[in-house]
């Protein structure tokens, strides 16, 4: 049972988030202002926190900063209507683990929560393995069941990213931020084109598809059952 603390003052947004996360099996509790949010954040154990940036009472960044000072390391996702690049940097510097700009898709929110809950372990293994996939990080070479994959640099990085998050939905925005370091959304379907190329290389004709498209959200890499 995953316990999530939602610190959000907007009733409508809070209601939708609580309902959506509840449907996904999370136990969500809500605090409506900064002061009570900080109090609940430090007095109980939580697996995750979602903190709105602008709150009555105490600013969201101040809450996260205070908790981090008190050595409470609960992963925190900061929600904000402030979308400037500097705001994002400030959010992460205050101790937030991810920063999501309003308005956001609920699917994007839950995908990011999943990622925060299952932090990719920075394994020092030189070879990643998912089902029939193997990725040699030192030799920069990938195989699917002994079939070598001709991966370009970017495709290699994409595959590594997906393999480290096996079974989790990876959204387009996450890929743009983490692979391309773009903090804006290009007009073209850049991510889809690159992912399409990677999929054709990984999932050959007649092979069970490992990478699949999650409509309207992103992509997922799953080992066949």
């Amino acid at each position: 049972m995953t316990k999530v603390l939602l610190i959000e003052d907007d009733f409508d947004i809070a209601t939708e988030v609580v309902a959506e996360l509840g449907r996904k099996g999370y136990v969500v509790q809500q605090a409506g202002d900064g002061t009570s949010g900080l109090e609940r954040g430090r007095s109980e154990h939580w697996d995750l926190m979602i903190v709105d940036r602008m709150l009555p009472g105490l600013d969201g960044l101040a809450i996260v900063r205070q908790l981090r000072q008190e050595k409470i390391r609960t992963p925190a996702l900061i929600l904000s209507a402030l979308g400037a690049i500097d705001d994002r940097i400030l959010g992460l510097r205050a101790g937030g683990d991810d920063y999501l700009i309003k308005p956001f898709a609920l699917a994007e929110l839950s995908a990011r929560l999943e990622v925060l809950l299952r932090r990719p372990v920075d394994s020092h293994e030189a070879i990643l393995r998912v089902g029939p996939l193997e990725l040699d990080l030192i030799e920069r070479q990938g195989w699917r069941s002994r079939r070598p994959l001709e991966l370009l640099m970017r495709e290699f990085k994409l595959l590594e990213y997906l393999m480290r998050r096996e079974g989790q939905i990876v959204t387009r925005a996450m890929l743009l931020e983490d692979i391309w370091h773009y903090h804006f959304v290009p007009n073209t379907n850049l991510v889809d084109v690159h992912m399409g190329r990677l999929r054709r290389k990984v999932d050959g004709d007649g092979e069970a598809p490992l990478i699949s498209n999650v409509r309207g959200v992103g992509f997922i890499l799953r080992a066949p059952a």
Binding site: L152, M153, R154, T188, L190, V193, H194, G196, R197
Partner: peptide, 9 residues
């Protein structure tokens, strides 16, 4: 290079 696949398509 990022745009090469788009151009090729």
């Amino acid at each position: 290079e990022t745009y090469r696949p788009l151009a090729e398509d």
